[in-house]
Design a binder for these strands. Sequence first.
DNA 1: CTATATTGTTCCAACTCCGAACAAATACCG
DNA 2: CGGTATTTGTTCGGAGTTGGAACAATATAG
Lengths: 408, 408
Amino acid sequence: MRKINTHDFKVATRTTSREINRRIALNLIREHQPISRADLARRMSVTRGVASMLVQELIAQGLIYEGATGEVARGRKPTFLHIRTRDRLAVAVDVRFSKTYLMLSDFSGRQLALEIYDTVFAIPQFVKDLARRVRRMLKTQGAEGNCEGIGVAVPGMVDHRTGRILNAPTLGWRDVDMRDQLAAATGLPVQVENSGRACSLAHLWLERDAAAATQSFVYISVSDGVGIGVVVGGELMRGHDHIAGEFGHMPLSLDGPRCMCGMTGCWEAYISNLATLSRYFGWNLSKLSPKALHEAGRGSFTMPDLVARARGGDVKANAAIQSTARFLGLGLATIINVINPDCIYLAGEITTAWDLIEGTTREALSERALTSSAARTPVRVAAAQEHTRLRGAAALIAAPTFAAPRVA
Amino acid sequence: MRKINTHDFKVATRTTSREINRRIALNLIREHQPISRADLARRMSVTRGVASMLVQELIAQGLIYEGATGEVARGRKPTFLHIRTRDRLAVAVDVRFSKTYLMLSDFSGRQLALEIYDTVFAIPQFVKDLARRVRRMLKTQGAEGNCEGIGVAVPGMVDHRTGRILNAPTLGWRDVDMRDQLAAATGLPVQVENSGRACSLAHLWLERDAAAATQSFVYISVSDGVGIGVVVGGELMRGHDHIAGEFGHMPLSLDGPRCMCGMTGCWEAYISNLATLSRYFGWNLSKLSPKALHEAGRGSFTMPDLVARARGGDVKANAAIQSTARFLGLGLATIINVINPDCIYLAGEITTAWDLIEGTTREALSERALTSSAARTPVRVAAAQEHTRLRGAAALIAAPTFAAPRVA
DNA sequence: CTATATTGTTCCAACTCCGAACAAATACCG
DNA sequence: CGGTATTTGTTCGGAGTTGGAACAATATAG
């Protein structure tokens, strides 16, 4: 039961019903392709006449196409309908501290080309260089006419509406108008989003697996930091100041270990890869400056190494991981009590040890979950897709085609 | 950008546009009454012809009525339209440990009758007794035909869809089918909701003050426990297991004081009235059993007494309150980082000392807020309306009349 | 070849917004 | 006092939409 916003509403016109139904049809075709007009009509509970009209328009718009005819026991054979994704393309960009990832993707998230290069930190140069690489990639792939935009995922705070990067401490970027600069340099529409959120968008819009068909979940990626996207009712929570979902910096204990953000006791300071490694090596992070913390995380010994040692029988390594698992579960419990999603998806290096830690995590989670049903909230390791962030960046461009029309 | 739920969608029919626009018109009339048809048409950006038709239907449905004619400089005088709320009634029930509150209210939340009596804990008797009182109240108020339902606010977990009370520890109620029992006994539609959420609904649907016109806020009521309602995009977050928004039991420090819920370090254990009082009296709550904790909160010395002492110059009283203020701010910071609402509304006895604690609270909040704009999130003391919970219970019945139609 | 079944199209009725014309009501002005 | 201008509210035809039914197209079974 939603209250209508009397300061920002949308009146229905005589074409609104069509727009709504066309969009529903498009989504049903996307989910059940290949599907016939008659099947579509049944699923929508409309007459075949209406479904035919909707299909005709979707074909005219180039959103779907007719494929082969199907086989049925009796009667006229149906013509199957398919979503047109193969030749609708987006450029996805994932900017990280060490490398920048550049992918050409179709609207289903399939990778067509990939380029990885050292990140350029000076903004004008970054934009100029990126624009050049995008042009070249589109040209060599023969995709110049089909690319509908550029999606950019950035590790930091982003105002998605304006496309401004407010603060990306890892990259040293503050208040950068990425969208307009990149759009001007390439002539393509640009969307910018935080990388944790981008991952959740990849899951929401591009995950094919039927088990992923939930409209309400929290996507948590644990690595150097903790990236989170909260999806409620099929919509990503963004918040008034674009920081909604920042569970990484909720306290587990106010006087806990120092966090890279400058505060103490943040969840991130308990479960990040650096936190786990420092438990193993006995580092005292609280005595380090925020800057020194950044450096400490860039050593040569990584989480996969630690997991390998734990599997190899290293008791101390296992203890460090189990400790992280416990704090992970305690934090998850709060997320469950507060957002109460259908499901939680977990990503990051720690998930390679999921078989080792699931029990500990679930036990800690159950300790602080408010009800037994909440304690049973599924925690799934996110499908081991490659380049989730890049897929999320692509989703920024692809999603508007399929999203529900704004109404009332 | 919302993803369409392909398993639960609503196709647009040929009457959908009208339904949408009728509902928009109704809300605009509600907000700007008295208002003419011509004015309504301008606000909606439709022709006067359309607005006239919408108004005609709303009048036929008995949702609005024509009032006096207005004055204009030139031309034909407009006929003003008004929302019909005076003779549309709801019964609101607020069940607390000591007393049960019963109110007859109109659809604007105005109180027409109030009855307070000792809470009956045996369910069948509670229902029978309540039904009798409701019948009597409707009869003595001459409102038998106009009452459109009963809204019930309960301190505990409620499945709003089925109207089941899952667990109300204060009352000792578990898995009670309140809705169907009460509906059977009274013949009226019944809606049940958690009392913290009910307060947020009162604010969302019945608050007249224009300053309250935000679609995204968190309502926090601090008393024996911490009741919270999270409203995002004009919609109350309920969650998969009906516990969304339970910030009261997020940890500030895992090894903090014992909470009534059985866990330790919950925010509630730092800021509830009992927590504040126990700081003043030097009680050690951690050594008490959950049951003993319940008892401790029912003493004769209350928060208003403590606030009075603080104002009178009692240094220890002030210290106890300031300590609570600090923990309040630290918890608010996490809520802001996680939900990032437009605004936070605060209610409960502690707000009588708001002038004493605002500075401390804001300071603590700023310490842990992730951005400077987040740190500036307005924290307002909820309008000192009487019986907010009862108004919320009434809103459960009144709101569906004004809510946005479900589409796509 | 006929009966049956299914798909997809076409047509009209009912309902909607949209634009314009029209009637009603009022103030202003000569 | 009457005409003009202005605003409100209604009415009517046009175009876009769903809903229902008839129809054409296509295939199988016997």
